[in-house]
């Protein structure tokens, strides 16, 4: 490797590693157990919300990815840009957008409230929605790349063997795209797990209902910074484990 590339790569790595190392230094190892025991609710909410949000994102993102990968229609580029928007939007903007549309006084949220008497803000469902909103683009983006890599000739052969569009998708395209889909699931899940801005804006903050780990960390930082460090450590470790395991799964 050329020396100058090595140096820059080293600096890049340092930029990523130093803050994490700083976190490790500040973690109050002796009080770790107590801090974590007190955050059981946040961990539970985080798991429930991130898993449900990933499910929603996969359920909707995979068909969307298929449409983008195989469709050929006017406005496709605009559609793709729209799908990817939440990736670049600040999370708080996502939260405001959700409030404006699906909030109690938003056009759709108001309709849902009138018809079913359900309001999304301040509920776990709202937190799931916020997390789904930010996770969906990641699932879609990666799944679309996966579908694009599928050999279309195989689907054509399947068609000559009597398979209709749904069977070709189910039996040929989907299995071929599994590695990409797995990557999309992991990225989407990680994004849902780390979601903060849209959640606090749209779903609010209530322990046991909408307070996820990132929210708990944010509020603990104001009350008890030590506990915030402990909780941050949990998120870092869990995320690192999952990313490593998933990487192994999809590289193989």
């Amino acid at each position: 490797m050329p020396l100058r590339l090595g140096v820059l790569a080293g600096i890049g790595l340092a930029l990523l590693v130093v803050p994490i190392a700083g976190l490790l230094i500040r973690v109050p190892w002796s009080g770790l157990g107590g801090d974590l025991a007190g955050s059981g609710d946040a961990v539970r909410v985080s798991i429930v919300v991130s898993v449900l949000a990933t499910t929603v994102a996969v359920g909707l993102g995979v068909p969307l990815a298929w449409l983008l990968a195989r469709g050929s229609f006017r406005g496709q580029a605009l559609l793709r840009a729209t799908v990817l928007l939440p990736i670049v939007l600040p999370a708080v903007v996502s939260g405001v957008a959700l409030l404006a549309s699906l909030g109690r006084s938003g056009p759709i949220g108001g309709l849902i409230d009138d018809l079913f008497g359900i309001t999304l803000p301040f509920t776990t469902a709202g937190a799931v929605l916020a997390a789904s909103f930010v996770a969906l683009p990641f699932v879609t983006l990666v799944a679309e790349a996966g579908f694009r890599a599928v050999d279309r000739n195989l689907e054509e052969v399947a068609a000559t063997l009597g398979a209709g569009p749904w069977r070709r998708f189910r039996r040929i395209a989907l299995p071929q795209a599994v590695p990409a889909l797995a990557a999309g699931v992991v990225l989407g899940w990680a994004r849902a797990l780390g979601e903060f801005g849209a959640t606090v804006t749209f779903a609010g903050n209530l322990s046991g209902r909408t307070q996820t780990l990132p929210l708990a960390i944010f509020f603990e930082l104001e009350r008890d910074p030590e506990a915030a460090f402990s909780l941050s450590l949990v998120l870092v470790v869990v995320s690192l484990l999952v990313l490593t395991a998933a990487r192994r799964a999809w590289v193989r």
Partner: peptide, 17 residues
């Protein structure tokens, strides 16, 4: 294609991997 009674053997077979 799925409505035709054809047996299509493409170049190199193209088996489902």
């Amino acid at each position: 294609p799925e409505e035709r009674s054809v047996g299509y053997v493409p170049q190199a077979g193209l088996l489902f991997p």
